[in-house]
């Protein structure tokens, strides 16, 4: 009896939590499908007429394709570079003995502790003198410095958890260090690579301050900047903003769903000892 009550309470709490987290998404979708007029007069949780005007406006009037392309290029490139450099750094930190390892880990983490706003101006001057303002590299490089610590820390932790025996077995089997890295360690690190990749991608996809500061016009603006600049002098086009938010969230959500299978698969395959 008591057990049953407990389960009901637990279930109720879960439902409440789900409503709490999912409601904004629901409302964004509903609002993006409601006409502006209806939205301002009597907004309804159960809209009567679904219209796609806002989405159409997004791609015809506003050229929302360009910011999406920019975001994909910047976030994608940053993620790939972060994973490559981060994996190599993490391998060294996890597997090779050298002096000052703890200090290096500390420095890497310290980078993220600067408030972003405090380094916008110096970074701007730096990028301007390198002629990188309003270019992809001008965004990718700052993103890498901010995303790298997460990559390195998470990957170092997960590589440390992979039994060293496996690489040693590979060595005895005849593999060189590079072979044991690519054929044994890397496949086993795929789940954590996917996880850190997703986190890095999301960070870059949503980043606003640098993207706003280091771009000049719509040519190189990313999705968050573009959405922020939707608002005109006299009105805020909520319908279009929310439609854009939905469009911007979709690729990330899709990516997570794709990789999720991979993550779960990787976790179960990793069981070595019985």
């Amino acid at each position: 009896m008591k057990l049953a009550t407990g389960r009901w309470v637990f279930g109720g709490a879960l439902v409440a939590l789900m409503l709490f987290t999912l409601f904004p998404f629901y409302w964004a979708i509903v609002a993006s499908l409601t006409s502006d007029a209806a939205l301002f007069r009597d907004p309804s949780l159960w809209p009567q007429h679904l219209i796609f005007d806002h989405y159409r406006a997004l791609f015809t009037e506003r050229d929302f394709i360009t910011p999406i392309r920019n975001s994909l290029v910047v976030a994608g490139t940053t993620t790939i570079f972060c994973l490559i450099v981060g994996t190599l750094a993490a391998y060294a930190l996890a597997r090779i003995e050298f002096r000052g390892k703890a200090a290096i880990m500390g420095f890497i983490l310290a980078v993220t502790m600067f408030p972003q706003i405090s380094i916008v101006s110096p970074l701007y001057l730096l990028l301007r003198s390198l002629h990188l303002i309003d270019t992809y590299p001008g965004l990718i490089m700052p993103y890498m410095t901010f995303a790298m610590p997460l990559t390195v820390w998470v990957l170092t932790g997960s590589i440390r958890q992979i039994p060293k025996d496996l690489e040693e077995a590979a060595h005895v089997d005849g593999a060189t260090r590079l072979q044991s890295f690519t054929k044994i360690l890397l496949p086993l690190a795929v789940p954590s690579l996917a996880t850190t990749g997703i986190l890095t991608f999301i960070y870059c996809w949503n980043e606003f301050l640098f993207a706003l500061s280091f771009t000049l016009g719509p040519e190189r603006q990313t999705v968050p900047v573009a959405i922020a600049l939707f608002r005109g002098q006299y009105q805020v086009p909520w319908g279009e903003i929310l439609a854009a938010a939905v469009v911007a969230t979709a690729p990330v959500a899709a990516m997570v769903l794709v990789f999720q299978r991979r993550i779960v698969q990787g976790l179960t395959a990793g069981a070595v000892k019985g």
Partner: peptide, 11 residues
Amino acid sequence: MVFQNYALYPH
């Protein structure tokens, strides 16, 4: 070499 925990490549 045969390792104590076998060290089979799990993947």
